[in-house]
Nucleic acid binder design. Structure first.
Lengths: 152, 152
DNA sequence: TAGTATTCCTACCGCTTTGATAGGGAAATC
DNA sequence: GATTTCCCTATCAAAGCGGTAGGAATACTA
């Protein structure tokens, strides 16, 4: 289960926009430098976000990008879905599309539970939460536990 | 965040073995038919599981595969790690290897929380749980909620 | 000891995805 | 009209993914 570079970059760009505020559009160059991601690559990602309605753009002189909605209303899941499609998939299918037989029958509810638990984080945390470093209680509690930081 | 075909197949094969019991080795052919997965592909997966110590094999006449440990002690996370590497990664790196700056600083604890929540499911549910269709309370509760089944 | 069944190994294949770059067209500002 | 910036298309190499082929090694059976 991997978070792609696209998704990571997209969220980081969105966070820069959230921090910049609504009346201060940022150009690709600025964001790329601030977050240390390849400019041309980021260009394409921002474009996807625009098509997805997540950001709005303006060209020319004082142009750039800004968020298309208040950062309190945009979740990380929203961003990832726009640039990468479904949050969680099994063999390229969304879990409800699967079917199992024999001793594997209860595998479906398991994948469903995994997806629900991923949503419980990514679907609840907003850009505003991260930008101001105030993750929701429940999320913070998870991140706090030392065993969450250890690799198996 | 996708579960690969390898991982899905591996878990299903392991479940067949769990259901078969310790004194009844299954051959690749049997498992492939039972779960409807390509035989030759499954062969390679079972081999990885053997190298990872998850299953033991015997060739010849009454050969086949059986679990290398009681199914109550093997979690789904164990299986996935053996065939696919780390459970959760960001841009190919494990979360603790990342670092973020500016408004993205709190992105790291977020990824950590996601991983923790994935582990909370896949690292707790054992092959025995699934094979006998008795998922732990907490997991069952998640899978039960109707909104867990809806696509966004 | 010969035969057969099964795992095991190596290599390969086509396809898609991923991460990234290049170059120029279109529009907004000055 | 010049400049700035977004926007579009095309391309690229490398890696991963899902799957296949053929045969070598080994264990049981007779």
């Amino acid at each position: 289960m991997r978070i792609s570079a696209r998704a990571d970059y997209a969220v980081r760009a969105a966070l820069e926009l959230a921090a910049a505020g609504d009346d201060c559009p940022l150009k690709t160059e600025r964001i790329a430098e601030a977050q240390g991601v390849p400019r041309k690559f980021l260009e394409g990602i921002l474009n996807d976000m625009r098509r997805g309605g997540l950001v709005v753009s303006r060209r020319g002189g004082q142009g750039g990008y800004k968020l298309g909605a208040p950062p309190e209303t945009i979740t990380v899941a929203d961003v990832i879905r726009v640039v990468d499609g479904p949050l969680v998939s099994v063999r390229g299918e969304r879990p409800p599309a699967l079917s199992y037989t024999g001793p594997a029958e209860s595998l479906l509810p398991l994948w469903i539970a995994v997806r629900a638990n991923v949503r419980a984080i990514l679907g609840e945390v907003t850009l505003a939460d991260i930008a101001r470093s105030e993750l929701p209680e429940r999320v913070y509690k998870l991140a706090e536990q030392p065993e969450s930081w250890t690799n198996p």
